[in-house]
Amino acid sequence: MNLFRLLGDLSHLASIFILIHKIQTTRSCRGISFQTQALYVTVFVARYIDLFFRWISLYNFFMKIFFIASSVYILYLMKYRYRPTHDPSIDTFKVEYLVGPAVVLSLIFNYKFEFTEILWTFSIYLEAVAILPQLFMLQRTGEAETITTHYLAALGAYRALYIPNWIYRYFTEDVVDPIAIVAGLVQTGLYLDFFYVYFTKVLQGQKFELPA
């Protein structure tokens, strides 16, 4: 564990708390892509299936439990509790275009052709692009509530912070994980446009609005 990874994980935790807070205080999941949230459940379940056979640490254990539980809870909030506030007509990204390639890529590019190893690889590839339905929705509506942009910023910061973590691990532990690194770079890259608007508008006190 190093500081970058810890800050990344805390940022990830914060993003989830921000999202739950947004849904509960506004009593609405307006502006949140159900598809992206469903993809995150898929990602966490596929990756953290190793809770059953791999012990890393108490920290790792509780974080995994938290990520699975909170992502399922968010789906519940969206699907049942605040269902009327979700508008499927603007959440129309075709998730099969993400899940399909992630399955194929994980079957080709993996460290070992084993079921749980392929599930791990699949979860890494899928996570890299899971934010796309959300960003697509943002693009479509052209605006977002400020709290939603804080959620996205914290989520983007999480993967961005993993990059210095990998550089640090390369020099201190001689560990290189090419699959995680390539996917992580792609994932962080997807946030660049968003970050630009977030820093130049939201953090200057303006509303998040995309140019028409």
Partner: peptide, 10 residues
Amino acid sequence: DGNVIAHDEL
């Protein structure tokens, strides 16, 4: 398993 990455990240 020496040649497989440890997967110790979240």
